[in-house]
Design a protein around this nucleic acid. Structure first.
Length: 351
DNA sequence: TCGCAACGACGTCAACTAGG
DNA sequence: CCTAGTTGACGTCGTTGCGA
């Protein structure tokens, strides 16, 4: 299989997972293709839910009525009872929440009533993975949202919320320093693995720093004519007097940007803390070109991070779908067993 | 060991949407 | 209307497993 065809194969698989899992029937019922492997189609009644494609199967009594999302109790083979909550995102996509429950919560019935306007909005465009997963997370307190999950995964120091940088600098050691509008300084090491190399530092003007924040002080000009960022740990990020060309392997990515060095401070900390300024106002064509290059690099950097984040969400989303498959398979088996039991009861053998 | 295929991760571009 | 964010599509690269 060539790479191209492989990609199409993968895309087809993803499309099948997201779009063909639930097949709306003409009469409004739905057929879940997951159940086909068990030689039984799982059909549910139409009109139970305001969303037409919900594969709603109440194994144990909850989630009845018109309110959505439907809450389904599923008995796992291990004996554990789990609560499965269907969350419809689009006509094609259904995701679920699985939460271990102690008791049936009636409040679940009152949640998730989608008015027609909101439903139209939902149906008009497939929500992003972030929205999908955040909606998943919003109903169950134990499920972290994406932003929260980041902090859990990456530890306290890195801020992956990716504040919008307005200035990017490269130090003479190859590190990138991005200064965000919100006052966040991000230091990334190009040799490291992108996200993990990022360090976010909060810069403040005055007042007490927020808890846990790292203060970076910026002095407009030091005695030797350089600009300095004072960072904790007795280090200073110093702008060189002359704009130096970046190392050859980075020149294409940075253009003629001012370089910075991280070195020990040569002077005492300044009394006043001054906000960093963007590279000065540009006038000459060369400066405009540099500005355009800088903006492009900034956009590329942000898109790089966005793509990483998007892929991470996508993987998480696929995991959710796989979990759903597993739960529905269990559901399906249980329903089949229940059906057989009912058959035996209702139609006793007549010898 | 070498070549190949499969796979995952990544960077980039472009199209699209939401919000200001 | 503009900008930022999101995501599909595409190409590239590194890794791994397998057969010759």
């Amino acid at each position: 299989m060539s790479k191209c065809s492989r990609k199409k194969y993968i895309k087809t698989n993803i499309r099948q997972m997201t779009m063909e899992t639930v097949e709306p029937q003409q009469d409004g019922s739905v057929t879940d293709s997951v159940a086909e492997s068990d030689s039984a189609h799982m059909q549910t009644q139409a009109g139970q839910n305001s969303i037409p494609t919900l594969a709603q199967v109440s194994v144990a009594g909850s989630g009845t009525g018109r309110s959505s999302p439907a809450v389904t109790l599923v008995q796992l083979p291990s004996g554990q009872t789990v609560q499965v909550q269907g969350v419809i995102q689009t006509p094609q996509i259904q995701t679920i929440q699985v939460a271990t429950i102690a008791e049936t919560d009636e409040s679940a019935e009152s949640e998730g009533v989608i008015d027609s306007h909101k439903r139209r909005e939902i149906l008009s465009r497939r929500p992003s993975y972030r929205k999908i997963l955040n909606e998943l997370s919003s109903d169950v307190p134990g499920v972290p949202k994406i932003e929260e999950e980041k902090s859990e995964e990456e530890g306290p120091a890195p801020n992956l919320a990716m504040a919008v940088p307005t200035s990017i600098y490269q130090t003479s050691t190859g590190q990138y320093i991005a200064i965000a509008q919100g006052g966040t300084i991000q230091i990334s090491n190009p040799g490291s693995d992108g996200v993990q190399g990022l360090q976010a530092l909060t810069m403040t003007n005055s007042g007490a720093p927020p808890p846990g924040a790292t203060i970076v002080q910026y002095a407009a000009q030091s005695a030797d004519g350089t600009q300095q960022f004072f960072v904790p740990g007795s280090q200073v990020v110093v702008q060189d007097e002359e704009t130096e060309l970046a190392p050859s392997h980075m020149a294409a990515a940075t253009g003629d940007m001012p370089t910075y060095q991280i070195r020990a401070p040569t002077t005492a900390l300044p009394q006043g803390v001054v906000m960093a300024t963007s590279p000065g106002s540009l006038h000459s064509p060369q400066q405009l070109a540099e500005e355009a290059t800088r903006k492009r690099e900034l956009r590329l950097m942000k898109n790089r991070e966005a793509a990483k984040e998007c892929r991470r969400r996508k993987k998480e989303y696929v995991k959710c779908l796989e979990s759903r498959v597993a739960v529905l398979e269990v559901q399906n088996k249980k329903l089949i067993e229940e059906l057989e039991t009912l058959k035996d009861i209702c139609s006793p053998k007549t010898d």
